[in-house]
Design a protein around this nucleic acid. Sequence first.
DNA 1: AATGAATGAGTCTTCATTCAT
DNA 2: AATGAATGAAGACTCATTCAT
Lengths: 192, 192, 192, 192
Amino acid sequence: MRPRDEAKETLILNTALRLITQTGLAGLKMADLAREAGVATGTVYIYFADKPALIARLYTYLLRHSLSDLTAGILATDPVRVQIQKMARNYLTENTEHPEYNAFFEQYFRSPFYEETEISQAEEQSALQPIYDIVRRGQAETIIKEVNPDLLVTLVCGMLNELAKQVLYTKQPISEADWTTAFSVLWDGIKR
Amino acid sequence: MRPRDEAKETLILNTALRLITQTGLAGLKMADLAREAGVATGTVYIYFADKPALIARLYTYLLRHSLSDLTAGILATDPVRVQIQKMARNYLTENTEHPEYNAFFEQYFRSPFYEETEISQAEEQSALQPIYDIVRRGQAETIIKEVNPDLLVTLVCGMLNELAKQVLYTKQPISEADWTTAFSVLWDGIKR
Amino acid sequence: MRPRDEAKETLILNTALRLITQTGLAGLKMADLAREAGVATGTVYIYFADKPALIARLYTYLLRHSLSDLTAGILATDPVRVQIQKMARNYLTENTEHPEYNAFFEQYFRSPFYEETEISQAEEQSALQPIYDIVRRGQAETIIKEVNPDLLVTLVCGMLNELAKQVLYTKQPISEADWTTAFSVLWDGIKR
Amino acid sequence: MRPRDEAKETLILNTALRLITQTGLAGLKMADLAREAGVATGTVYIYFADKPALIARLYTYLLRHSLSDLTAGILATDPVRVQIQKMARNYLTENTEHPEYNAFFEQYFRSPFYEETEISQAEEQSALQPIYDIVRRGQAETIIKEVNPDLLVTLVCGMLNELAKQVLYTKQPISEADWTTAFSVLWDGIKR
DNA sequence: AATGAATGAGTCTTCATTCAT
DNA sequence: AATGAATGAAGACTCATTCAT
């Protein structure tokens, strides 16, 4: 017998993401997905129980991959300000280079698929953990405002998300000058 | 022969908006819409050629009706900081009390319906005009950072949008303490 | 608007029965049914929620029609023996002339559709009521064995069902001589 | 190279019979059958060309194995009445304890699988031979009605089949009192 | 011979749109 | 203009059968 191809699940998920980016979550058709992935329709149903299950799996899959290298290039010896700057830049880069991820998330939360599934909030939380860690460290060092970390993370992510959207719409990479400005707004906003 | 009922068109649009907020743009079914609006299915097709036309009409309709009260309560004599605080609060309230608007827009841009429409960006821009006006005044008074206003508006709107989402997801109105904190981040970020 | 055609439901049920007789319950396809009934596929779903609902409805429909004229030609003044003979003959005729009914029932009870549905036993019982009535009268007149009526009805129906099957398989109507014999076995079996 | 495993074929047939009893002939899925039998899907196709072949094989298999013990416990010295009573009891027991047989046969004849098969009626007839033998003896001894034996056997089997069904549906074994009653109806029906 | 992943034709069901009233 | 029954193309999912290992 043919061994169950572990890579095929990933192949299907990536193909799904690509199609969703092109045609929207609502436009995803199982037959298209199968054809694009180079498998038969039935094969998709070997790996995923049904369409909602596929979408839910795609969600957790992207969650794990989207924010995975948020800490890239950050040194433990970096001062808090530098760490936050690097991480913010990573976050922006991630969102700019993989706009599909956010595009999917936004659609998913508004879709009929969202309510149906039981997905651990924990997973979602853990992805943002590195951000919380630095915020806490900054507060401990009395560098960052001593307020609810959830609120700070919300505001900072909001700025970066909107910035990423802007980059996407204008289709122009952000200039170094603009990035410097943006980070100064971010940092002045959260520092003590 | 009764004339084409203007109020009925509005009724259908408002019903559509409500349903889209509940079930998503993709989940909107013409039969549901008709039933909820209290008319027959065929009647919807008297006022709108087809589903894409309905959605496009809803888009322009909302564009004209959203963000309308951004300047409410603002006095010309208020100092810049107060004006911005009031306007930010208005913006947040608007987004929190009328989440349908953003919910619709977010979905619309990602949907297959978007490609089909020919609508001027200009209209959208004008809604944000009061924000630009105050930013420029603040810069003239050397109170706000002397940088690209687009960037500032982007970052500020990003913060407020994310905050509004938070309010919606937790279904808890924002506390005064949190609002004070949020505005301090916003203001410290943009002030000179 | 077109008024909802009351006869269409019956048309679909009768068409379904015909197709099931030809191809078996498992062979019934909704598209075939629609085509044969001369309506669109979707129309079937206006009158019946789904396939199981259609089958369940067909069951109660046939139940009501199958044993409806069991008492045809029976006079209140007939003696018990004559009443039973007439009713037995009616029952046999019914089963012979409408073999589809029994064919459907037999398949229905064994099918995956059966378990799913909630159908009142009461309905089923009431169809056999005329038989029970006569049995009770016969017992009251001390003409029929004083035993559990359920058992008597079971045995008598068993004889007649098998006889009907025989008629169907041989495709020969039962001779008067055979009927006389059959009824003598039936009557001698239940009489005191 | 292992030889074609005779026991495995029987295992598959018995598993098929069990599943058909539970879910109906139409509900039998080859994948379920394989799993329940503890073999791979493909293995089933080594022993049987396809689903119709499997069903046809099951039919002849059951024909040979059912109704086997109809004469168990019957002594040549028993009077006709006792022989018939014992045989009727055997028949009832057989049908009650092996409802799968009748369940399968009833469905098989109605199914699309039936048309395809070429099987001699003769084989079926021979199983009922012992019943015919006793009936003839009873008629020779002028104890049983001097009528067409086919008709008598039909009626008697009809009673017993219906009784067996009753037992199955109520899931209660028949009481001795009920059996006595049932046999009295049977015997009074056929005796001179 | 045995395995079970893969296949894809075949079904059920939905829903935007039409049309007779 | 209004109605809602009817339409049928389109899409999700199943399952008998094949085939690479």
